[in-house]
Design a protein around this nucleic acid. Structure first.
Ligand SMILES: [Mn+2]
Ligand SMILES: [Mn+2]
Ligand SMILES: [Zn+2]
Ligand SMILES: [Zn+2]
Lengths: 165, 165
DNA sequence: TATCTAATTTGCAAGTCTTGCTAACAAGAA
DNA sequence: TTCTTGTTAGCAAGACTTGCAAATTAGATA
């Protein structure tokens, strides 16, 4: 039975880094912690904010650098949905996403039936991966929407929901 | 039998525009033509290039403006896949996309089985749409890849294929 | 056809997100 | 402790998109 796959633990990453001749800096260690098991699909900016509260002075540049590094190492993936910034996902398990077009949150979702998906008319492509994105409205936003629309619970500055069917 | 749905013809759009108090400018007419039936999923920049060859002096700003307009009118959709620029799609039919991670081209694909997709664990979401994106390598790129890798047929300046599973 | 008015186009500045560059710095080896 | 080399921080710059305002023009009006 496939255990849930994800980015290695901070400790394991420490080892991996050293074995690759990379140095283990406090910035990296903090980011390892912040990303480990993180299911929020944060943007670099969001991660930077969290990191900054624990390590004032850390630079956004370093956050980007470390995230790119981890992606190259296969420890996390990029998620590009809609207009805004790239989001980062340490969940390497076979899964998909649901986006609330109102508040922009992205949630993991396991999807049954993907194996049965039959693309028609692309015999000349060698398919490697399939991504499924559900667009909808979360219950919290649904409520705020029922009455007025002042009570938007946008945690982040309400990302522009460029819908891309 | 559902006829293939797509953006209205340039003539129909002309009428739609006038009936909405919008003016019918040569720039808009040209863009209607260039987008009508266009299955290349062009970026604003790409469309601007085509438009410029037929109408020197047209501005990129106008291209963006018109595309946004058409999107608001429901005549086309935005597609945001991977890192680069937004791509525009006048195909309103229920369809999905295949992306060549090598050259970046996007092709339409009809997918059988989407109705059977069962998202698990998002009872608190009201789902409105489902998008499926296949990642792969087109036959042309596959060839160029077999031998050396100098012969990349990147039509566009090879978009960075940020894979987002 | 000439006139008028509001919509449109341009051109450029500016905003957002991400990367390039490099001097100052520090991890880890010797 | 010293030395080497990878890393960080800061800032400039690149890519994409939008804001803004002056100049232009479609289309209504007389
Ligand atoms: Mn995820
Ligand atoms: Mn399409
Ligand atoms: Zn929401
Ligand atoms: Zn290709």
């Amino acid at each position: 039975m496939p255990n849930l796959i994800g980015m290695q633990t901070p400790t394991e990453l420490a080892a991996a880094y050293r074995s690759q001749g990379r140095k283990l800096t406090p910035q990296r260690q903090l980011l390892f912690q912040l990303m480990y098991g993180n299911d929020k699909h944060p943007t670099a900016e969001a991660l930077f904010a969290e990191a900054s509260s624990q390590m004032p002075g850390i630079s956004l540049r370093t956050v980007y650098q470390t995230l790119n590094e981890l992606a190259e190492m296969g420890e996390l993936q990029f998620i590009d949905i809609g207009g805004g910034a790239t989001r980062f996902d340490p969940n390497l398990d076979d899964h998909h996403h649901v986006v609330c077009v109102d508040c922009g949150q992205i949630r993991d979702v396991h999807v049954n039936g993907t194996a049965a998906l039959k693309p028609v008319g692309i015999e000349d492509f060698t398919i490697n991966e399939v991504g499924v994105v559900f667009q909808g409205v979360c219950s919290t936003c649904e409520k705020g929407r029922a009455k007025s629309n002042k009570t938007a619970h946008a945690k982040s500055p309400a990302p522009q929901a460029k819908v891309s069917k």
